[in-house]
Design a protein around this nucleic acid. Sequence first.
DNA 1: TCTGGGGTCCTAGGACCC
DNA 2: TCTGGGGTCCTAGGACCC
Length: 421
Amino acid sequence: MFALIDGNNFYVSCERLFRPDLLTRPVVVLSNNDGCLISRSNEIKALGVPMAAPLFQVQDLLVKHNTQIFSSNFALYGDISARFMEILASLAPRVEVYSIDEAFMDFSGISDPATLAQQIRQQVADWIGIPTCIGIGPTKTLAKVANHLAKKNSAYHGVCILDDLYQIDQVLRTFAIEDIWGVGQRIEARLKALGINTAYELKRLNPKWMRQNFTVVGERLVYELNGISCLSLEPEAQARQSIQVSRSFSRSLTRFEEIREAVASYATRLAEKLRLHRLKTNTLVVSVCANRFQVRNRQYYNSILINLPTALNDDAGLIQAAVQGLEAIFRAGFDYQKAGIMALDLMPITLAQLTLFDPPEGRNAKAQEISRALDKINQRYGRGTVHMAACGPKLSWKDRKSRKSPAYTTSWHQLPKVYAK
DNA sequence: TCTGGGGTCCTAGGACCC
DNA sequence: TCTGGGGTCCTAGGACCC
């Protein structure tokens, strides 16, 4: 049996931890650049505001309902997530961290899964204050279904167990295909065109036919809904395959020099992430695009793949390569909205291959010393305190983040103050 | 005016090898 | 006129997830 636990409205719940006054008020958390809603409290969901709604479209409604609006604070959410996963690891035999707020747990051979599940929820609530739901089923997909039910129906008291074949069929008959894990917009549309509207109807399809028409992904969906597990629990974190940094600009940019500063800054952030994970990259992809919502403007998207002569993770080397890539794909005359840089072909720093003519300590030993010094200063005084000149002096394209809460748990300067009377 | 960011997996097709 | 078969690797594009 698989159990899936996730935090309810996770980012909103994190924000409420240090603002108990918000427990009874509507709350939303915005995406980077304060563009879209990426977490909504139950009050907002009840208003029918969808996930990823652009802020400008719903702002009046939010204000009317006295909503507290936050910019995203990933330092906070990541820290709370780490504590959450630590608790799970201490209570469940095997845990797979699936996302920042979700984990699968191995419930095989558990004699009383309902009691264990409630214990886990209670411990998480007591120790870090995040409300959760747990779904339990014979496959990951059915555990996801159960979790969905536990969230939507308070009669489950946060824990839904699907372990009886008749009961599972009953549930699937009224379960919409678009709510199934792995069914996105495309597959939903194609299945509905074929008259398949419920999870039960999908479950009854021929797996071989599904493979022919919907690839192995569709075949696995059918098996998983039938209680035949195709997706196993994977407790060991897999090695990362890519790391990327991409951002929209706060306003559209047209000049090469401005975009170059943005790309240099993203390369800097990418280098920091690589060093944090003790990785180097052999391959970069740099991309730019015009504002796709300005349908009247000329559209442009382009990207370029750059094979590096030697694996890198230092600021200067990545900036140089990224800017060269940008020069190749930049075209004058467009309103650029976004740029990105991605590192592929990652390898641990201990394995990085030198070229034949490099000195034993590596050609860029000096660059690495500089990077180490930058990391030390920026860790101590805040990200971006010092950076390469290529990133520019003003950062005028930088994203907006006007409603960010303090880094309550990860910065000494921003610890919450408690007054005792 | 204002529309997120960071990931994974699968497949088809081309290039190349012997 | 007739023009192999089997395999790997790489890449782009599509689809999905949170």
